[in-house]
Nucleic acid binder design. Structure first.
Length: 479
RNA sequence: GGUUCCGUCGUCUAGUGGUUUAGGACGUCUGGUUCUCAUCCAGAAAAUCGCGGGUUCGAAUCCCGCCGGAAUCACCA
């Protein structure tokens, strides 16, 4: 049987890291089985609709490398894929329920319902609408909401992640199927759509766990087979045990892209948050995830979101891409992350800088802070020199003479490559009788005035002879 | 409050009755890689397996109770 999964977001804003996983897992499952993944836009709440949100969702998925076989843009044989365009389908299924006496139009005004609710709260009894079911129900027509007529009983079902679940009759209620504006609720629409679209594996967050018995009742009343239910545990806030949501400052996935997180790292981190293949592997490519993913190894407990580990993984991926795919491959990801000073520089120059600095990057945006001195002369800060823990014991005269000796030595070099420079630096150590910590610190600070930089000979090579000597001279004069 | 789910190092996790002195990863700490920062390498600290009973020769693993946390209880999804 072909596996068909779906990701069904509502276009109410960006996709945040708390809920992308409900797109990643269905994708992995569909791809590994040669099945299909459907993207469906659940836009039945007109009040919460956000212009452009659909495009943002599509863009986010695309960035992550998640493509869909049916849905907006690509089309498909089960469309339309926007719920707002499927009204007639919902109404047909609704009429079926009415004919069977399993749904009724509810004329009760909202204020009255509030009263019922309050009454129950005051008496500290659970509020179940079916206890207040109106006796006299009109013909269903636009402007009146349609409710399911619950037949309370026990439900036992199997969840591929949570195992065998059970719920008593007290959770079954007369939930709204169609709102008074004619739009279906999620509760009804997703059941109809999943069935019509042939979804075989339903993956969704744990927040739907407690309403599942009500869904089961609808499948039953509609006499349709339900998909396998796969409940994904929550991703928790890093500072507590609460579900991570937008209100907790859950960042959008695109925000991480802007911060220089690689899509590969994002996918890797999220996929492994709450899932593992039982081995000790930590770094997974998308293809490896597709190959090794399995639903029965998804955790049933929530996992805390840990940005520090994401950062580590991102560093791993930066290095992995560089060493396995080459400097150019990594460079292709860096366009938006260079400092303003690099604007006029050639790709060739930036590639050279990247090649010696890449293993220091945690995020691509670190480039902005870490590479500025390659592209423009740094401001001379003598305090930085004089307060250095190795240099502060040297007098100004000594510093100046060391610089001049170094300049002379370097100026006489015939070629300017890393090996030649390392040799020259080693010779300088012997000639000046200084420790590496002293001489190298001096030169390093003088040419960069940065808190850190790549190996000295590499930095000098990339900077070039002219720039290196000019900066050393400037510092020698300033002392 | 009702209902439901969850509970192994600080965090993510391995573990499905004995090879477990509970393994790995992030983080932390220490040392090494001729300067810095990072990488990399080596090492350390870190979990009475939520608690209490039981079953068993033997339990993180099975059963019961309790405790703690979370989710949900909308004409939102």
């Amino acid at each position: 049987m072909e596996i068909i999964t779906r990701f069904a977001p509502s276009p109410t804003g960006y996709i945040h890291i708390g809920n992308v996983r409900s797109a990643i897992y269905p994708y992995l499952l569909a791809r590994q089985s040669g099945g299909k993944m459907i993207l469906r836009i659940e836009d039945t709440d007109r009040a919460r609709y956000v212009e452009g949100a659909t495009e943002l969702i599509e863009d986010t998925l695309e960035w992550l490398g998640i493509n869909w076989d049916e849905g907006p843009i690509v089309g498909g044989s089960h469309g339309p894929y926007f719920q707002s365009e499927r009204m007639e389908i919902y109404h047909q299924w609704a009429r079926k329920l009415i004919e069977q006496g399993r749904a009724y139009a509810d004329p009760t005004p909202p204020e009255k319902i509030e009263e019922y609710r309050k009454e129950c709260n005051d008496k500290k009894t659970p509020f179940l609408y079916r206890n207040f079911r109106p006796t006299d129900t009109p013909e269903w027509q636009p402007g009146i909401p349609l409710r399911f007529k619950a037949e309370p009983k026990e439900y036992n079902w199997h969840d591929e992640v949570m195992g065998d679940l059970h719920a008593g009759p007290e959770v079954l209620d007369d939930i709204i199927l169609i709102k008074k504006d004619g739009y279906p609720t999620y509760n009804f629409a997703h059941i109809v759509d999943d069935y019509e679209m042939g979804v075989t594996h339903l993956m969704r967050g744990a927040e739907y766990l407690s309403s599942t018995p009500n869904y089961l009742a609808i499948y039953e009343a509609l006499s349709i087979e339900r998909p396998k239910i796969i409940t994904l545990p929550h991703i928790l806030r890093s500072d507590g045990r609460k579900k991570l949501g937008k209100r907790d400052g859950a960042k959008s996935v695109t925000e991480y892209r802007e911060d220089g997180i690689l899509a590969e790292a994002m996918m890797n981190y999220l996929a492994c948050l709450g899932w593992n293949d039982g081995t000790e592997q930590e770094i997974y490519t998308k293809d490896e995830l597709i190959k090794h993913f399995s639903v029965d190894r998804i955790q049933s407990s929530g996992a805390r979101y840990d940005e520090v580990k994401l950062l580590w993984l991102n560093g791993q991926w930066i290095r992995k891409i560089f060493t396995e795919q080459g400097a150019e491959a990594l460079y292709a990801h860096t366009q938006d992350f260079w400092p303003a000073s690099a604007k006029g520089s050639s790709d060739e120059d930036k590639l050279k800088v990247l090649s010696i600095i890449y293993d220091r990057l945690k995020t691509l945006s670190d480039l902005r802070e870490m590479t500025d001195y390659f592209f423009k002369d740094p401001a001379i800060d003598l305090e930085l020199l004089k307060n250095n823990k190795f240099l502060k014991k040297l007098s100004e005269a000594e510093l100046e003479s060391l610089l001049k000796t170094s300049i002379m030595k370097l100026d006489n070099l015939e070629s300017w490559d890393a090996d030649t420079l390392q040799n020259a630096l080693n010779e300088l150590l012997a000639e000046t009788d200084k420790k590496p910590a002293e001489l190298f610190s001096l030169i390093r600070i003088a040419i960069s005035f940065a808190p850190f930089s790549p190996a000295l000979n590499l930095t000098m090579e990339v900077l070039g002879k002219e720039t290196t000597l000019a900066r050393l001279n400037a510092v020698a004069r300033a002392i």
